[in-house]
Every structure is written in C-alpha cells, then in structure tokens.
C-alpha cells in the first residue's frame, strides 16, 4: 500500500503538470448555418499600408447565393501569406451576407495574398483572393510625398479635403497604380520625369519639374512607391544569372 502511494504521488504530480501545460483557452469551432454559391469582395482589397501595421480599412467579403443575394450565417475562413494575419481568421456572415475582418500586414515589404474560402452545399471550397501591399520605409515615404505633391493631379478621386485637379488638365496624368503604363518605363526615366518635368521625356509639359523641390532620395522614394502599388504588379527586369 505504501509503495502505491509512493509511486502514485509523483505520477499524479506529473499528470497535473501535463494538464497545466495545455493551453487553457480552446478556440470555439464555428459551424456554418448556411452555404452560399459565390464569394465576392465588397471592399478592402489592394490597400497599401506600412509593413507590419494594421490596414486602415477592414476587409469586407460577401457570400452570395446563386441569385446574387447575400447569405447569412455562411462560414468564411481566411489564410494570409507570410506573417500577415487576419483577425478573426474565421467567421460567419452577417444578415446581409457580409463578413468584416481586420488585416495586419507582414513585416517585409511586398504583396500579401489573403485567401478567403467558403464552402458550397456540396462542401466544395469557393475561394477569393485579396492582395494587400506592405510598404517599407522608402515606399512609405514615397506615399507621403505622393499625398502632398502628386495626388492632386495623378489621383482622379476627390475627397472632402482634396478636390482632384485631374479633370482640369489637357493631357490626363497616369494614375500611379497604372502598371500598364509605368511598368513599361524604367526607373531612371520616371525619376527624370519627376526631376526635370514631363517635357524632358516627351511627356506633357503640364508635369512640372520637382528637382528643385524634392531631394534625390525623395524622388527615389516616389519611384519605389509607384513600383510597389503598380497594378498589374511590377517585376524588376534585373540581370539573370546562369546556374552553374
């Protein structure tokens, strides 16, 4: 009997210890109350933010049925590339079929693909990709400079605080997200247009020269910002090395 107690106490202690090591909180498993036929983006895609930071606007996705009406109570699950994170990572859609989540970007600059998944009645997954852009220091500086100097003309959208000058220009400036244009121009030429004005590279003279106002590192920052937000994405054509 004594022997059983002698062994029993350490064993009990070990069991208690093991139980204590387990994580106390158990994440509740969500069960879908309904299934949709399509998953669409309401808002929140293609945002840019500082690396590692939460995005300003939430991601809103909507689950629809075959008729295009919102489905309430459908399960949507999010996975994020790299160390980006979506909170909450899973959720059920609200009465109007939408689900709103917040996204925090990863800690390296670049594009992060957020994949939202819902399941139809047959259990087949339906996915939706949302690409978010993380800006490093240089690109973020470019973004601030763009807001101050460039967006007045290059951004067609007017806000309450800033009325766009786009419509007033004889030659319409390119939106900085216009990859079809900017991806065909090399870094040196974009920098030259900013520094010496549009006329210096056979573009519109309405683009003034900013070389006297912005420093070289400011201009580089603007170029890197334009590259970062370009749509379709910009792929640097660098040297390619032969493998040995």
């Amino acid at each position: 009997m004594r022997r059983t107690v002698e062994i029993g106490i350490p064993v009990l202690g070990m069991l208690l210890g093991l139980a204590g090591c387990q994580k106390g909180a158990v994440t509740p498993v969500l069960h879908p109350k309904a299934n949709g036929a399509a998953l669409v983006e309401s808002s929140g895609g293609k945002q840019a933010g500082f690396v590692g930071s939460p995005l300003d606007q939430p991601l809103v996705v909507q689950v629809n049925d075959a008729q295009g009406n919102g489905v309430a109570g459908a399960l949507v699950s999010f996975t994020a590339a790299g160390d980006a994170a979506v909170k909450p990572a899973t959720g059920l859609t609200a009465d109007d079929g939408t689900l709103t989540v917040n996204c925090q970007l990863g800690s390296v600059s670049g594009r992060y693909r957020i994949v939202a998944t819902t399941w139809d009645k047959q259990g087949k997954p339906i996915t939706l990709n949302l690409d978010e852009i993380a800006l490093g220091y240089q690109q973020n500086l470019g973004r601030q400079l763009n807001e101050k100097y460039c967006a007045r003309c290059h951004n067609q959208e007017s806000t309450v605080e800033r009325v766009s000058n786009y419509d007033n220009l004889a030659t319409k400036p390119h939106s900085f997200t216009d990859g079809n244009f900017y991806n065909t121009v090399n870094d040196a030429d974009i920098a030259a247009i900013i520094t010496y004005g549009g006329a210096a590279r056979h573009q519109s003279a309405e683009m003034p020269s900013y070389g006297g106002t912005l420093s070289k590192s400011d201009v580089d920052a603007l170029v890197s910002y334009v590259r970062a937000i370009s749509d379709p994405p910009y792929h640097e054509k660098g040297l390619t090395y032969a493998r040995q």
Binding site: K148, Y149, S209
Partner: peptide, 9 residues
Amino acid sequence: PGTIEPNQH
C-alpha cells in the same frame, strides 16, 4: 516653406 509649388530654377 513647405509650399507644393515646385522650384523650377
């Protein structure tokens, strides 16, 4: 200081 009018030399 800080005006966005570019200095065009």
